[in-house]
Amino acid sequence: MVEALYNLFGGEGPFLYFLAVIASILGVVLPLTIAVAFAVYFDRKIWAAVQMRRGPNVVGPFGLLQSFADGIKLFLKETIIPAGANKVIFLMAPMITFTLALISWAVIPFDEGMAISDLNVGVLYILAISSLGVYGIIMSGWASNSRYAFLGGLRSAAQMVSYEVSIGFVLVCVLVKVGSLNLSDVVYAQEGGVLSWHFIPFFPIFIIFFISALAETNRPPFDLPEAEAELVAGYQVEYSSMAFALFFLGEYANILLMSIVMAILFFGGWYAPLPFLDFIPGFIWLFIKTALFFWMFAMVKAFVPRYRYDQLMRLGWKVFLPLSLAFVIIYSGVMVYAGWLPTNG
């Protein structure tokens, strides 16, 4: 993507290269931010539809501009810093959350060759960045100097660390089949229509991945860090205005990221499901698949009640961890026995 833009600009000198990098970053971040705004709107709409309400319908046609109105409202409000708070860390936490939510998108291949950076260790990069995401939450919980925020932060940290393990094992299964940590290679391995997509051979671990992704992004039914009934709003209870908006945007950007990662790992990335549909550009397919997963995230929020904390921990450590570990052994055993291991590299 950077190279293509560089050549488009004329392909001369470091300044133009720098410009091409900036342009491609903006080309990802701006649509992403707008997508996040609409994701919030659709999340609320779907939630409302399940509960037979109307949802946001006042600002703009069908309420489409609701998120922007909320954004402007938050932008204009005063940032309140609690008296006992650790000011620097308190303000740094939402920035870290938002930045980390954005930089994961650097390795996502939107179409063939359309990634800001086509890293050889793209899958590990995403895992690393998502494991960093816990810092924004734990820092905000501690710096707020409030019991509710601190409890929320601790819960969230424990939750994210627990479910990362099973996500890691699920990734190992897929990577053993693909033979590369490059996200583009993961997509190339699923070429040839819906039957060669990974969700068919990897269906059980795809389910594990989806549930772990819900826990990793602190979505219902695993939204214990912000359980409003017991912790008011968890780690973000002391935050107002833009600081809160950054948390909110970061959360939804992470949900979209998990959706697109599932589309890439299990649903063939930018490939069309049937060969005769190839005329539709790849990034549109990826967008449709991501939207499908986002819809699933929203539906789960609408009709699954919240877990209890001990149930959550039990599910992570005593159910998913042994299951995903067993699947790593089964899948790699079958692949070694049948000689299906990839030979490249």
């Binding site: 890293l119 260790v121 590990l124 690393a128 816990v134 810092y135 501690w142 940290a157 660390v161 990362e164």
Partner: peptide, 22 residues
Amino acid sequence: AEFLAMLLVIVYVGAVAVLFLF
């Protein structure tokens, strides 16, 4: 050494330092 770099972030920053912080 991009693999080692990612492992450093995942293991030390993502897990060990979180426990420290805890």
